[in-house]
Computed example of a mutant assay.
Amino acid sequence: MPTPVTFSAPNDSYGIPVVEQANALRHQIRKGDFNLPTSGFAPGLVQGNIVILSKTWADDFLLFCQKNPVACPLLHVSLPGEPLMTPLGDDIDIRSDIPEYKIFRHGEFSQSMNDITSIWQNDFVTFVLGCSFSFEDALTKAGLTMRNIEEQVNVSMYKTTIPAHPSSHFHGNLVVSMRPFKPVDAIRAVQITTRLPKSHGAPIHLGDPSLIGIDDITKPDFGDSVTINSDEIPVFWACGVTPQLAIENAKPEIAITHAPGKMLVTDIANDHISLM
């Protein structure tokens, strides 16, 4: 499990500690003043996908994560009924600090909410999983440009035909996120993200999207379409939206996830999880 950041946190170009920016962003989210995708915010800090399930389903989902560590890299698992994510940062309340939640009932999407305090249960277990937005920071530091950040849109995400390893009830195919790069930059991206297993690690596919079941690269299943130039290839990483498909198949009475692209911003430094 990650531990709270106890060393000097990174500063932005104006010298403001990024942890302070993260805390301020979470308070904006909590007040309902921010509901955008979180890519590019609080650079240098880990962002996380979330899955919230009742204790009855938690052990089986934990097994699903352990069998699929690339798609579901575990950062934190809470105690039942515990809403504060203290190991991940100061004053993080999982009931209110995500820009948008998706509620599933018996595997069917039910509604979106900006605060789940009203439906919180004392047996809820929260899973926080590593996110590709964390490795975007490492790629940016290496001089690579992410098209979704450049065009100020949500990252492109696609359902694939690559099966995840099933647990007793959770099963389904992988979801991937895509970023286009020139071939030389794609090689560099592979090298950098290989060192970040808690942020999905290396890409699982490069090039022809039809080989992993994507028929039309211009029509993502989640997020937004981005420009792919003629001298670029699409690069695909395993994505933390994968559990949403597994939830649809497992059909628990209730499950809560983040909306794609709208993550939990933590106080943990990206450099810290690269060593985990």
Results as ranks from 00 to 15, higher is better:
2 P>S: 11
10 P>M: 00
15 G>L: 02
15 G>Y: 01
17 P>S: 14
21 Q>H: 07
24 A>I: 03
29 I>A: 05
32 G>W: 13
32 G>F: 13
39 S>Q: 10
40 G>W: 04
41 F>G: 00
45 L>R: 01
45 L>N: 01
46 V>T: 07
49 N>M: 05
54 S>A: 08
57 W>P: 00
59 D>A: 15
65 C>F: 02
66 Q>H: 11
68 N>Y: 03
69 P>A: 11
71 A>M: 04
72 C>G: 06
72 C>F: 09
73 P>I: 04
75 L>R: 02
82 E>H: 12
93 D>F: 03
94 I>G: 00
94 I>D: 01
94 I>V: 14
96 S>H: 04
98 I>Y: 00
98 I>V: 14
99 P>M: 09
109 F>R: 04
116 I>Q: 05
116 I>G: 06
119 I>L: 07
123 D>K: 10
124 F>A: 03
128 V>Q: 02
130 G>D: 03
130 G>H: 02
132 S>I: 05
134 S>R: 00
138 A>N: 09
143 G>C: 08
143 G>P: 12
147 R>E: 15
151 E>F: 09
154 N>Y: 03
154 N>C: 14
155 V>K: 08
156 S>K: 14
158 Y>R: 04
159 K>Y: 08
162 I>V: 15
162 I>M: 14
163 P>T: 15
168 S>P: 00
171 H>C: 15
171 H>G: 12
173 N>G: 09
173 N>A: 11
180 P>Y: 04
184 V>N: 15
186 A>E: 05
188 R>Q: 13
189 A>W: 03
193 T>M: 03
196 L>R: 03
198 K>Y: 13
204 I>W: 04
206 L>R: 09
207 G>S: 08
208 D>Y: 08
208 D>C: 06
209 P>Q: 12
210 S>Q: 15
212 I>L: 10
217 I>P: 01
218 T>D: 13
219 K>W: 10
222 F>C: 06
223 G>N: 06
224 D>P: 04
225 S>C: 13
226 V>P: 00
236 F>Q: 01
238 A>H: 05
246 A>F: 08
247 I>P: 03
251 K>H: 12
251 K>I: 10
255 A>D: 02
255 A>R: 01
257 T>A: 01
258 H>E: 06
269 A>F: 00
270 N>M: 05
270 N>P: 00
